[in-house]
Design a protein around this nucleic acid. Structure first.
Length: 848
RNA sequence: GCCCGCGUGGUGGAAUGGUAGACACAGGGGACUUAAAAUCCCCAGCCUUCGGGCGUGCCGGUUCGAGUCCGGCCGCGGGUACCA
C-alpha cells in the first residue's frame, strides 16, 4: 500500500489549484460574496506558528464558504512600515527598505507551501509607494474635511541621543540605548479628530452583534463616556478661576485640595519664575509617557501657595497643589480631590497631611475612612452626611444627578459629558513610515502637497549611523517649493503612525492597484469584511482606529455608507505559547536554548550537547529573544503542511492560547496517515456488509457537528468529531458503497483543515473535480434523530442510576421508571420522595 | 494602578443551568513480530470497607440541580494611546 507522502502530494494539489485559479476572487453578480480577512502580518522575516494558526483559521472559513457556493475574497499583504526595520538598519548597517522586502520574499516563500487559499494576485505592502501614495491622498482629503489638525503633545525624549523614543524603548524610565533618564517633552504633532466620533463609535458598538462581547466592552471603556460637573474655583488672589471637571460632584463637601497637572497653564506659568516649581515639575516629567507608568509612579505633590474658595462656602479656602498623577489630556487638567472616596486622593492626602472628610457612609456601617477610601459602586445606596443638595439615603448615580441640577440651578456649574478617548496623534519622528504630505511655508503655513505630486516618496539615500530621523537631515528632500505661493519651503519630516497603514488595507484589497484609494464597484461588491480574524491584542487600538478611518473614508467619498463599520464579524484568536528552556551562566544570568537543543527525559530536561540540566518555564508567549519559538517550516518539512494545519486547529479552542508540543504534531501526522490508509483500504473494498444504516446515521451526525463547529469557530470540536468518525468508519462492517460514501464525506469535511490530503482521497475514490470546489455536504435531519434516549436519574442532584426510554415517553411514566431503579431505591432507603423533576430528554431529579 | 479575559485528570481539552472528563497526547496492559519500528485491540480522575465518598483555582451565595449564573479573593495572560 502506498504511504502518504506529503512532500510529493502537497505541491501537486497546490499547482492544481493555481492552474484552475481556484482562489482568485472574482466579482460574480450571480453569487453571494464572502470576504474573509486575517490581520496581515508584519514582515519580521520568519513565519511563526501563531501566523500558521491565524491563517489556517481564516483558510478553514474561506474554503468552507467556497464550498457553500460563495464568491470568496481571501487576500494577503504586508504591514511593512515600522520600527524593527530601522532597528535592523542601525544594528547591521543595511537599509530598512532592503531588509523589509527581503523579509517579505522570505516569508512568502514560507507561506506558499501551507496551501492557504489566498488570492496572491492582490498582494501588496503598505510600504509600496502605490499604497502609501493613496494614503497621502486621503490624508489631504481628511485635511479638507477638517479631520486633521496640529497641537502639542508629549513624547518620550532621550536627552543623550536627542531623539524621541517609542514606549517600548523606555525601560524602567531609561532610554534603551543610551541608558539616560527619559523625560516627557512636548512637540507639535499631527492629529486625527477621532474625538469628534466618540459618541458615534460608542453607540455603534451595540450594532456589532458578531463581535466578541469583551472587545465591545474594552472599546466602550476605552472611549470612557462619563457624566460630570464642570465648574470654577475662585482664586483668593483674584486670578482667573481654576476650571475643574469631576465625575463625583456629590462629594464636594469632602473636598480637601485642588490638584492641577504639571502641564497645566498655571503650573507652567509658575515654572517660569519659581525655581522650586521648575525643579518639582522637572521631577514630575521624569519617566515615560505611558498611562501605566504615570499611574503607578509614586505620588508627588507641590503646594503652589495659591488658595481657592469652596463654591458652597466662600469662607472655606482650599490649597492648590500640583500633582503628578493628574493628566492634562483628560477633562480640564485640574480636579478637586476627595480623599475619603478616592484611593489615589487618599494616598496623596496622607502623604502630605491634607484633611480627609467623609461625605457618606455605608448604610449599615458608619465608619470613618482611615487608610482605605470608601468607594462603593455608584448604584449602591449610601447614607449621606448633611448633603447640600438635600440627599439622605441615595445611590451615587442619583447623588451626581441631583448635584448637577443643584449647581445648574444656582448657576455655578454645568453638567457635561466627557470622553476619555483622546485624538489620534499620528506623527512619528521616524524614517520608515508614510511621509505626511504637507509642506511648511513661512508665508502660507502648513500646506498640503498637490495631489499630482503624490506620492511623496521616501528618499532612498539615508543613513542610520546617527540617532534621530534621517529625513530631518536630508536637505535636498526636505527643501522644496511651496505648492501655494511657489516660494522656498520645507517638507514635513514626520511620518505617519503605522496604525494609519493598517486602518484601511482591508478596503484596498478590494482593488489593490487602482489609482484612487478605492473603486466604487469593488467596494460596493466586496465590502464589508464578513469575517475578520486576529489577535486579541488588537482589541482596542487597531480596531478602533479602523472604525474611525472607515467613517473618515466615507466622509471623503472613498467608502459607502454601509462600510462605516467595516468588519461585520470579528474573531480574536489566542496566542501560541511554548516552554522556555534556560540554563544559567557563571553570573547566574539566564541563557536561553532552542527546543531542538534540549532533550526531554523522565528525570528532567537536559542539553543534548553537554547533558547539562535545563530549567523549564512552562507556557510563555513565543519570543525570539527567549528562543522558545517553533519554526513552522521545520514541521512542514518533516510532516507536511496538512499536519501542521491539523495540529494547530485541533485540541485548543481557537480563542484560547495554545501550547505547542512536538508530540502533538507527531500525533496529528499519525492520524492523517491512518485516514489515508483507511481511504486506500476502502477504495479496494467490494460487496455488501452489515450496518450501513448505522454508519450513515453516524455520517450525518458528523456532517452536522463538523459544520456547526466551523460555523461557530469551534474547530477543535469539529476535529474531535472527525477523529471519532474515523474510529467508527474503521470499525464499521458496512458494505463498500456505504463506506465509500462515508469516506468521501470525510474527505469533504476534512478539506478545510487538510486540503491536500482531502483532494488526494477524493481523487482516489473517484470524486468529481476538485474537492475544494465540491458543494459542501448537507446533513439529512431525519438521520439525526434517535428514537430512544438515556436519562440520568439523580437523587438530590447526585447521579444514582440511568434509564433508557422512548424519546416521547410521558413524564409520569418516566417518573415511575426512575423511582423504580435500584439506585434510587437505595438512596431513598424506603422514604418517600418529596418531589420529582422530569426534564424531558434530559434528566430526572428526585428530591428526597 | 486601571480596563478586559482565563483557571476542568499527568497533559491539550469536551460539556444549550441537566450523567463532568467527549476527542486526543503521554502512560499501563495485550496482539502481531526472531526482535524492533509501524499498526491494531483493551484499560485509565482521585480515594474506597465496592455500599459509596471526594472532585472543574479558593471562599460564600442563588437553584430541585452550578464547570456554567451572582459576590468576594488568589494566580496567570492581554491592553494601557510611539511594539505590531
Amino acid at each position: 500500500m502506498s504511504r502518504y507522502d506529503a512532500a510529493k502530494i502537497e505541491p501537486k494539489w497546490q499547482r492544481a489549484w493555481e492552474e484552475a485559479g481556484t482562489f482568485e476572487a472574482k466579482r460574480d453578480p450571480a453569487k453571494p460574496k464572502y470576504y474573509v480577512l486575517e490581520m496581515f502580518p508584519y514582515p519580521s522575516g520568519r513565519i511563526h506558528i501563531g501566523h500558521v494558526r491565524n491563517y489556517t483559521m481564516g483558510d478553514v472559513v474561506a474554503r468552507y464558504k467556497l464550498a457553500k457556493g460563495f464568491s470568496v475574497l481571501h487576500p494577503m499583504g504586508w504591514d511593512a512600515f515600522g520600527m524593527p526595520a530601522e532597528n535592523a538598519a542601525m544594528a547591521s548597517g543595511g537599509h530598512p527598505k532592503d531588509w523589509t522586502y527581503q523579509n517579505i520574499a522570505d516569508m512568502k516563500a514560507q507561506m506558499k507551501p501551507m496551501g492557504w487559499s489566498l488570492d496572491w494576485t492582490r498582494e501588496f505592502a503598505t510600504s509600496d509607494p502605490e499604497y502609501y501614495g493613496q494614503q497621502q491622498s486621503m490624508f489631504i482629503d481628511f485635511m479638507e474635511k477638517g479631520l486633521v489638525y496640529r497641537k502639542n503633545a508629549v513624547v518620550n525624549w532621550d536627552p543623550v541621543d536627542m531623539t524621541v523614543l517609542a514606549n517600548e524603548q523606555v525601560i524602567d524610565g531609561k532610554g534603551w540605548r543610551s541608558g539616560a533618564e527619559v523625560e516627557r517633552r512636548e512637540l507639535t504633532q499631527w492629529f486625527f479628530k477621532i474625538s469628534d466620533f466618540s459618541e458615534e463609535l460608542l453607540e455603534a458598538l451595540d450594532g456589532l452583534k458578531d463581535w466578541p462581547e469583551k472587545v465591545r466592552l474594552m472599546q466602550a471603556n476605552w472611549i470612557g463616556k462619563s457624566r460630570g460637573l464642570k465648574f470654577g474655583f475662585e482664586r483668593t488672589d483674584g486670578g482667573a478661576p481654576i476650571e475643574v471637571f469631576t465625575t463625583r460632584p456629590d462629594t464636594l463637601l469632602g473636598a480637601s485640595f485642588v490638584g492641577i497637572s504639571p502641564d497645566h497653564p498655571i503650573a507652567k506659568a509658575l515654572e517660569e519664575d519659581n525655581p522650586d516649581v521648575a525643579a518639582f515639575i522637572h521631577e514630575c516629567r521624569k519617566g515615560g509617557t505611558t498611562e501605566e507608568e504615570i499611574e503607578t509612579a509614586d505620588k508627588l505633590g507641590y503646594d503652589t501657595g495659591i488658595r481657592v474658595r469652596h463654591p458652597l462656602n466662600p469662607e472655606w479656602e482650599l490649597p492648590v497643589w500640583i500633582a503628578n498623577f493628574i493628566l492634562m489630556d483628560y477633562g480640564t487638567g485640574a480636579i478637586f480631590a476627595c480623599p475619603a472616596h478616592d484611593q489615589r486622593d487618599l494616598d496623596f492626602a496622607r502623604k502630605y497631611g491634607l484633611p480627609v472628610i467623609d461625605t457618606f457612609f455605608a448604610l449599615d456601617d458608619p465608619k470613618p475612612v482611615e487608610n482605605e477610601a470608601f468607594v462603593p459602586p455608584k448604584t449602591e445606596k449610601v447614607k449621606w452626611i448633611n448633603h447640600f443638595a438635600g440627599l439622605d439615603e441615595n445611590t451615587g448615580e442619583e447623588a451626581v444627578e441631583a448635584t448637577i441640577r443643584f449647581a445648574e440651578e444656582l448657576g455655578w456649574g454645568t453638567g457635561v459629558t466627557q470622553y476619555r478617548l483622546r485624538d489620534w496623534g499620528l506623527s512619528r519622528q521616524r524614517y520608515w513610515g508614510c511621509p505626511i504630505p504637507v509642506i511648511h511655508c513661512d508665508n502660507c503655513g502648513a500646506v498640503a502637497e498637490k495631489k499630482e505630486n503624490l506620492p511623496v516618496r521616501l528618499p532612498d539615500d539615508v543613513s542610520f549611523d546617527v540617532p534621530g530621523n534621517p529625513l530631518d537631515r536630508h536637505l535636498t528632500w526636505r527643501h522644496c517649493d511651496c505648492p501655494q505661493c511657489g516660494g522656498p519651503a520645507q517638507r514635513e519630516t514626520d511620518t505617519m503612525d503605522t496604525f494609519v497603514d493598517s486602518s484601511w488595507y482591508y478596503a484596498r484589497f478590494t482593488n489593490p492597484h487602482a489609482d484612487t484609494p478605492t473603486v466604487p464597484e469593488d467596494v460596493d461588491y466586496w465590502m464589508n469584511v464578513d469575517q475578520y480574524i486576529g489577535g486579541i491584542e488588537h482589541a482596542i487600538l487597531h480596531l478602533l482606529y479602523s472604525r474611525f478611518f472607515a467613517r473618515a473614508m466615507h466622509i471623503a467619498g472613498h467608502l459607502p455608507e454601509k462600510s462605516k463599520e467595516p468588519f461585520n464579524a470579528l474573531f480574536t484568536q489566542g496566542m501560541v505559547t511554548h516552554a522556555i528552556y534556560q540554563t544559567r551562566d557563571a553570573d547566574g544570568r539566564p541563557v536561553y536554548h532552542y527546543p531542538e537543543e534540549v532533550e526531554l527525559t523522565e528525570t528532567g530536561a537536559r542539553l543534548k550537547a553537554t547533558d547539562e540540566p535545563v530549567e523549564v518555564i512552562p507556557s510563555a508567549k513565543m519570543s525570539k529573544s527567549k528562543k522558545n519559538v517553533v519554526d513552522p517550516v521545520d514541521i512542514v518539512e518533516r510532516y507536511g503542511a496538512d499536519t501542521a494545519r491539523w495540529f494547530v486547529m485541533s485540541d485548543s479552542p481557537p480563542e484560547r492560547d495554545v501550547e505547542w508540543t512536538a508530540s502533538g504534531a507527531e500525533a496529528a501526522a499519525k492520524h492523517l496517515a491512518r485516514v489515508w490508509r483507511l481511504a486506500v483500504e476502502i477504495a479496494e473494498t467490494t460487496g455488501e456488509g452489515e450496518g450501513d444504516d448505522v454508519l450513515l446515521r453516524e455520517m450525518h451526525k458528523t456532517i452536522d457537528a463538523v459544520t456547526k463547529g466551523i460555523e461557530g469557530f469551534l474547530f477543535n470540536t469539529s476535529i474531535a468529531r472527525l477523529y471519532a468518525f474515523t474510529n467508527t468508519l474503521a470499525k464499521s462492517k458496512a458494505g463498500a458503497e456505504a463506506k465509500k460514501q462515508a469516506m468521501k464525506i470525510m474527505a469533504q469535511l476534512m478539506s478545510p483543515m487538510t486540503p491536500h490530503l482531502a483532494e488526494e482521497i477524493w481523487a482516489h475514490l473517484g470524486g468529481e473535480g476538485l474537492v475544494a470546489k465540491a458543494p459542501w455536504p448537507e446533513a439529512d435531519p431525519a438521520m439525526l434523530v434517535e428514537d430512544t434516549v438515556t436519562l440520568a436519574v439523580q437523587v438530590n442532584g447526585k447521579r444514582r442510576d440511568e434509564i433508557t426510554v422512548a424519546k416521547d415517553m410521558p413524564k409520569d411514566e418516566v417518573e415511575a421508571l426512575a423511582l423504580a431503579t435500584a439506585g434510587v431505591q437505595r438512596a431513598l432507603d424506603g422514604k418517600p420522595p418529596k418531589k420529582v423533576i422530569v426534564v424531558p430528554g434530559r434528566i430526572v431529579n428526585v428530591v428526597a
